[in-house]
Design a protein around this nucleic acid. Structure first.
Lengths: 366, 366
DNA sequence: CTGTTAGCGCTTTCAT
DNA sequence: ATGAAAGCGCTAACAG
């Protein structure tokens, strides 16, 4: 057997500490593991020996023995995205306070990556997982089901209809409706909607749009419904030309908003479902020589420090990102500790921060 | 021994798979572990059995045996900060591509947290660590030394003078100098500096400032030196009243910039070392009724999509955040795989993105 | 090519 | 109160 088997060279083990202290393995283990009874004197000797050798417990071995790893797994779309970074921070803060570490994996909205990530976490024997899943249909949730068979699972940010799980989300539909209502209340009727889902082609009917929504991320579907709710309540006819479909890269958003701006009966307001959409919309406004809010009103999702110092300061929807993560961690940790999960949906409220990017539409002769 | 010892109930082991397939443990292990020779037929039976039982390898047990965990540890100040989120993403992307997972821990610039995080990673027997350390003095690096004794360590974003380690950073000093030179070239001589370190009190001399710098984050020291370099080259006298010291919360920055703006010989330009500083400075400008760049020029660190759509579009320093993380991971992975670390400093170049927030200062009668 | 066996470092009975 | 010994699930010698 090669010398480098087992843990890396130089990492002292509990046996070495025991030998150094002149006691049995179990005694050393009891002191160092903080369980069972050990006489003060032996205890002292063990501690001294551990200190001298620079002993550090091997958490892997401990987990092997105890069957728990005190580690949570987290799967999100992109840790580099400020939204998820905030959620992850909420998760980490809460779990650390309860003695748990966290392994975070990004999927970039790729389902294969999500499956792989789930497997990695199962293999590492985490005690529970939090997932912001891109899965939608029944076919796509097999990996989540497999995880559920083994450990507690909670969903965050995105509900999955076919799964009966603890889920922590925000009130996407209400948030979107409130934003659009705000625009309508200011007098707008031609409201562009920078939406999200990467679709094969632009749906031309309301039904087509809804169908598209059910094939995509839960959040996107909810936000679309909120947009439609507000329109319906105000009896404003729905116009498919006013919704952008497709990946919300800044470039695409700029193009699409420019298109809506050059329509014969152009939009006078824009509602964006993501930060990247807001900057894209602003670009389009600028190149069209239009000003906000005089010519076009704007409301977007995901507030940031920047939005408040824009000219004009932007009216935005603020999501409780940290709280979202914290709540998900709490629910998961409770399930790990307590047993029976409640399997309910926890909906956190977002907040519309009114600033100055909403004003009445320009007169009929714009 | 209680029934719930060992791994969680229901997690099939390699022995169970072997039994199901009617082969020896080792044969099952060989097929499932992907090493050694196994005849196609037995292989097929093992695979079928594993599939049927829903077998997933226990990475903990594997690591116990092999002594490697295929996991990297990462310690940063705050995963919720877009800068670090980008770096972490770079690390995760490269390490995943090489078959490594990542555990990320945030310290919030607290040294005790950093020590604790290092211990967690050592306990979890990660194969290497990447640290953006808040440690400065010799006294503060003991935990890093302890880690170095066990596994490869690379520093990212922040060099630590007393440590001879592979280090991946950006050219902070040059970046700062270039920014200030740009301001000077436009005609500015009163250049406010939104700096960082939380100091007990405002240093009043150049020497005091440098002393403060050496007690703080490496990046902050470098950026101060760059600011001073540019001033010296242009023979502009250094004025301690023009540098803000203290935690760069948006509120504090707003106050401090307002102060510099109300000086008898007020500043005509601002250089910020962080995004939060930029929004704070913008606020101060706005409440002072001053416009950028007509009254005051502005350059800041850390570009973002927002900066480009501000009115005016902001001239910013872009750091290669993803590359920073990727490079750190590469260096670490090489050290883990190859052996001898080079222990050199890799300096990545930042880039000044010239937009429209820099113009000549207003005439003498402002 | 396959099966047996001995660990990896720790926790946890079980005697003493 | 302490020590001896078994076992967590896996890998890797080694024998067959």
């Amino acid at each position: 057997m090669p010398a480098d088997r087992g843990q890396a060279a130089g990492q002292p083990t509990i046996s070495e500490v025991a030998a150094e202290a002149g006691v049995g393995r179990a005694t050393a283990a009891r002191t160092l593991g903080g369980y069972g009874y050990v006489s003060p004197e032996l205890r002292e000797r063990v501690l001294a020996a551990a200190e001298k050798l620079g002993y550090r417990a091997n958490a892997l071995a401990r987990s092997m023995s105890t069957g728990v790893s005190h580690t949570l797994g987290v799967i999100v779309a992109d840790i580099g995205n400020p939204f998820f970074a905030g959620v992850v921070r909420g998760i980490c803060d809460t779990s650390r306070a309860r003695g748990f570490d966290t392994i975070v994996l990004s999927t970039y909205e790729n389902l294969d990556e999500e499956v792989a990530a789930t497997n990695v976490l199962i293999d590492k024997r985490v005690d529970g997982v939090i997932i912001a899943s891109a899965a939608v249909g029944r076919r796509e949730v097999a990996h989540i089901r497999a995880a559920m068979d083994r450990i507690p699972v909670v969903l965050v940010d995105r509900a999955v209809a076919s799964l009966d799980l603890d889920t922590v989300v925000i009130d996407n539909r209400d948030a979107a409706r409130e934003a659009v209502e705000t625009l309508i209340a200011a007098g707008h009727r031609r409201i562009g909607f920078v939406w999200g889902p990467p679709a094969a082609q632009q749906p031309v009917t309301r039904r087509g749009l809804l169908a598209e929504a059910s094939r995509n991320l839960w959040t996107d579907g909810e936000r679309l419904r909120g947009y439609l709710d507000a329109l319906d309540d105000a009896r404003i006819p729905f116009d498919p030309e006013l919704v952008m479909v497709g990946r919300k890269t800044e470039e695409r958003v700029t193009e699409e908003v420019a298109r809506m701006l050059s329509l014969p009966d152009r939009i006078t307001a824009i509602f964006c479902t993501e930060t990247d959409g807001v900057t894209g919309a602003l670009r389009a406004l600028r190149t069209a020589g239009l000003s906000c809010p005089r010519d076009v009103a704007l409301i977007g999702f995901d507030d940031s420090a920047w939005a408040a110092v824009m000219e004009p300061p932007l009216t935005m929807i603020e999501q409780p990102v940290h709280r979202l993560g914290a709540k998900a961690a709490e629910v998961l940790l409770d399930a790990i500790a307590g047993g029976e999960p409640a399997r309910e949906t926890h909906t956190l409220r977002s907040r519309l921060i009114a600033r100055s990017s909403v004003a009445p539409p320009p007169g009929p002769h714009h």
